[in-house]
């Protein structure tokens, strides 16, 4: 059982939940949330790369043999920062879209756009 429920399979499952949200939900806020879900799935995926039980975080004075691979962790700090920026920008844009069209629904935005 543990063979199948590792970090990789769980993260792909979460990633697919995000993709489902993008495909099936018409609410723009939910789109942004789905995007955030996909990003956290990727963070989980990266952190479980090359991970073995008993390894310690690569902080401070540790020998190479006991610490986990520091590269994915360093990459993910950057990815988290980018993710925050991205969510902030998309929500800001959404606010201006909402001021113009007064709806949170993708389809209604298209319909109102046609009327203009």
């Amino acid at each position: 059982m543990e063979r199948f429920f590792n970090g990789e399979s769980i993260s792909i499952l979460i990633f697919l939940i995000g993709v489902y949200g993008l495909l099936a939900r018409r609410n723009i806020i939910k789109t942004v949330i789905s995007l955030a879900i996909m990003q956290s799935a990727i963070i989980l995926f990266f952190l479980t790369i090359n991970y073995e039980d008993g390894r310690i975080p690569p902080i401070g004075d540790v020998t190479i043999h006991t610490a986990v691979d520091p590269v994915p962790q360093a990459l993910m700090i950057t990815a988290i920062v980018i993710g925050v920026a991205v969510t902030a920008v998309s929500l800001t844009m959404f606010i201006s879209l909402y001021h113009h069209y007064g709806t949170t629904n993708w389809l209604k935005v298209i319909n109102k756009r046609r009327e203009d």
Partner: peptide, 9 residues
């Protein structure tokens, strides 16, 4: 604004 947010997402 619509074009921008669509492109971004």
């Amino acid at each position: 604004i619509y074009d921008g947010i669509l492109y971004l997402l």
